[in-house]
């Protein structure tokens, strides 16, 4: 079997065999095939090879494949979103619980609209300054001041939700780590100060 010298047409024969050509190209190949025995032979060979490979392939069970596929994307997306929502809120509730514990130890802080933090009650364990919380406090509007003190367990669910919402707007939280303190102890030992 010899090759037709018309390389352009020979190159298009597989697409022609599959009916993928249109317009001028389809007409060009049809004309050449009609006039050229070598092109007809090659076209026949393409059909033979296609048939041989197709017949040799096992039939696949479409229904079984479809059963193995994931369900449509929309419910999956919804599931993902809901999972993200839960994980986000778990952290918020955990943070709120931590705050309640801290508050329960007797600390009372008041965030003022001007960004200053006023210590309302004393704590022997925690000390912080206005500078520590100024950036977060500055991000709050004047009417968004949060005041809480004493037993936060007295707060209602609505109050806690409000608190969580406002926590979202805080860029940082006040440090609850105790600051290092250099003890100054004056002991008068017989007129000498140690």
């Amino acid at each position: 079997m010899t090759d037709c010298p018309n390389g352009t047409v020979r190159d298009l024969l597989p697409e022609y065999a599959h009916g993928l050509l249109e317009g001028n190209e389809a007409a060009l190949v049809a004309e050449q095939v009609a006039a050229c025995a070598m092109c007809r032979e090659e076209l026949a060979l393409l059909g033979q090879v296609n048939e041989g490979l197709t017949r040799g392939a096992p039939r696949v069970d479409v229904a079984a494949i479809v059963r193995a596929l994931p369900t449509a994307a929309t419910p999956r997306l919804a599931q993902t979103t809901s999972r993200r929502w839960v994980s986000r809120h778990v952290w918020q509730y955990a943070t709120a619980a931590g705050l309640i514990l801290v508050a329960g130890s007797g600390i009372v802080w008041k965030y003022e609209p001007d960004g200053q933090v006023t210590r309302v009650a004393d704590s022997s364990h925690v000390a912080t300054t206005a500078a520590d919380v100024a950036p977060s406090a500055a991000s709050m509007s004047a009417d968004e001041g949060i005041t809480f003190g004493g037993g936060l367990s007295d707060l209602s669910v609505d109050d806690l939700q409000l608190l969580l919402g406002q926590m979202d707007s805080l860029r940082t939280l006040p440090s609850t780590d105790p600051q290092s303190v250099t003890p100054v102890i004056a002991i008068n030992d017989g007129g000498k100060t140690l």
Binding site: L53, G56, A57, V60, V66, L69, T71, A72, A73
Partner: peptide, 23 residues
Amino acid sequence: GDQRAASELVERHAQALARFAAA
């Protein structure tokens, strides 16, 4: 959410893939 579209997609391409693998 239309699961029938998945069937149509598999129907359109599965046999060609099997043919290629076997070849």
